[in-house]
Simulated assay, not measured.
Amino acid sequence: MQNTPTSSPAGHLLTLLQLSDSALPTGAFSHSLGLESYLSTGMVHDEASFSTWLGKFLSQSLAYTDGLAVRLAHETTSGDELARIDALVHGAAVPRQIREAGVKMGARMLHVATSVFPTPEVEEYRRQVAAGHCAGHPGIAFALGARGAGAPCADTVAAYLFSTVTSMTQNAIRGIPIGQDAGQRVQRKMHAQVLDTVEMIFTLKEEDLGVAAPGLEIAQMRHEHLRARMFMS
């Protein structure tokens, strides 16, 4: 009888699972990233409309902001270059709530990465954020923690994208609401779109960072002035 292996060459998957867990204390559950504005107008109102919105959000917004930032951060080994990526992705967040959300979630993700997946690169990024030289971004902290565990760049980008998909789906379950089974169907539908988006991200250049989806940015700005809100952004 063949012995059962006690270790896996893909051990980095455990790191990615932990970093992308919806229970990770980054506060992502409290941010709608513009979705709530679409709920308030009725444009997103059921499983089908949310699935359509989420696919567009993934490929037309997240890919050009956090997704590309994760890839660039994973690829660079220069502290100065990492600080430049931080500045670019922070500056590209035009809506005030989105910019503030990035800083808050970035600080929490960086705290987790420093506490659980410490590397010299993570520690240096933490020092730069503490000194005010970097704003801090969850995607960058995620990328550094995953890279330190040996996770390949493409796997890291895919895990980050799907963690955001999961957070947005949980918010839709509460905000529309659509129910847990519908949420699982939407997440399953996003598998192919996440993989397609990862491939697309690897065709982008640094100058593509922050390419705007104007409708989403306007919705994110309007969210700040909604009369009643469930989410912070």
Rank of each mutant, 00 (worst) to 15 (best):
I98R: 12
V116L: 12
H133D: 13
H74G: 02
F57H: 15
P118H: 05
L24P: 04
A48K: 15
G79P: 03
A141N: 05
A73Q: 04
K56C: 12
D80N: 11
G132N: 10
V103S: 08
I85Q: 03
P118N: 06
L110C: 06
I98K: 08
L72H: 02
S61A: 13
G67S: 05
V129I: 08
V112A: 10
D80I: 04
T26W: 04
G79C: 02
L33F: 15
P95S: 07
T77F: 07
G102F: 12
L35K: 10
V70M: 00
P95F: 05
K104I: 08
L88T: 06
T119P: 06
D21E: 10
A131W: 06
E100N: 14
A73R: 03
G106E: 08
H111T: 13
M109V: 02
V116I: 14
T77E: 13
G102E: 01
R96Y: 10
R71V: 00
D86S: 09
L110Q: 09
T77I: 01
T119I: 01
Q60V: 01
L82S: 03
E75Q: 07
G42N: 07
G132D: 12
V116Q: 14
V94E: 14
L68P: 03
L62F: 12
A73N: 05
G55I: 04
T77P: 00
V116T: 15
P138N: 10
G67F: 05
F57Y: 15
V112E: 13
I140P: 06
A146H: 04
F117W: 14
P138S: 06
D46Q: 09
L39M: 11
A93E: 10
A92H: 12
G67W: 06
E47Q: 15
S32C: 13
S20V: 00
E36V: 03
A141Q: 11
S30Y: 12
